[in-house]
């Protein structure tokens, strides 16, 4: 397998951002009310992730190390703004239903995490493929979660009614359902001993612990690691 395909495989299966690395929980929980919303969120994140990885990788020798993080944030925020304006123009329905979560892609830990962990050390094309793989993995997991929640909560998948709506459990399409579905999924991973960052089966790059759930389960002292990184 050549190195480009390897990166894509890595993002979808081996280091799947949602199920295995447990990154970017806010959009994962918030936008999976239906399979359609989940795909919209996944694809817009993919677009940002691919190009942010590529641009940051191309600029990795230009940006001084001291202003690395602000530089990365400016690149990511510009790309998010581009995606946001394109969506507003061409897919207004998706834009409406995702609302605030589109601009909030800026603070999604997957994007900054991949920039720090991969794009800073690799050539632009490989980094692009890494972003593509991670993005597809993210879209895939979001769609699975969205489909499960839509099926239990509304009895439909992608709007096709599979179970009569009298038999659906509405709470799964609402806020608590997101936590509960993810909890059972995580428990299933523990039961089957599948690799996951939250049961210690998967190693995690250090930087990403600053803004995500991992600090909760692996480290005893969650805060200092990220502070050192910031001052370095």
């Amino acid at each position: 397998m050549n190195k480009y395909l390897e990166r894509i495989y890595n993002g979808i299966i081996k280091e799947n951002p949602t199920f295995i690395l447990m990154l970017g929980m806010c959009p994962t929980l918030a936008t999976t009310t239906s399979a359609f919303n989940a795909i919209g969120m996944g694809l817009s994140t993919t677009a940002v992730l691919m190009f942010s990885n590529m641009v940051i990788s191309a600029l990795r020798n230009v940006i001084p190390n001291r202003v690395r993080l602000p530089g990365e944030i400016v690149v990511i925020a510009s790309l998010v703004t581009i995606v946001q304006l394109l969506m507003q123009a061409y897919t207004p329905a998706v834009y409406e239903s995702l609302g605030i979560y589109i601009p909030l892609i800026v603070v999604n830990c997957i994007i900054l995490g991949r920039a720090e962990a991969y794009a800073l050390f690799n050539a632009p094309i490989v980094s692009f493929c890494d972003g593509l793989g991670m993005g597809i993995g993210f879209t895939f997991s979001l769609t699975v979660l969205g489909a499960v929640r839509e099926l239990i909560g509304k009895g439909s998948v992608f709007g096709f009614q599979l179970i009569p709506s009298d038999f659906s459990i509405g709470i799964f399409a609402l806020a608590p359902g997101a936590f509960i579905v993810l909890a059972f999924l995580s428990a299933l991973q523990n039961k089957l001993r599948l690799p996951s960052a939250t049961n210690g089966g998967q190693e995690v790059p250090e930087f990403v612990t600053s803004g995500d759930v991992l600090g909760a389960f692996n480290k005893t002292e969650e805060a200092p690691a990220s502070e050192e990184k910031k001052e370095a």
């Binding site: 447990m22 709470i171 806020a175 608590p176 359902g177 997101a178 936590f179 509960i180 993810l182 909890a183 059972f184 995580s186 428990a187 299933l188 523990n190 039961k191 939250t198 049961n199 759930v213 909760a216 389960f217």
Partner: peptide, 23 residues
Amino acid sequence: IPKSFQGSPIVLLTAGLMAIAFF
């Protein structure tokens, strides 16, 4: 707590129950 629910699952489940309570 059942073994496979220790760690993150029970915390997420608790958050879900808190969300129901906040309803």
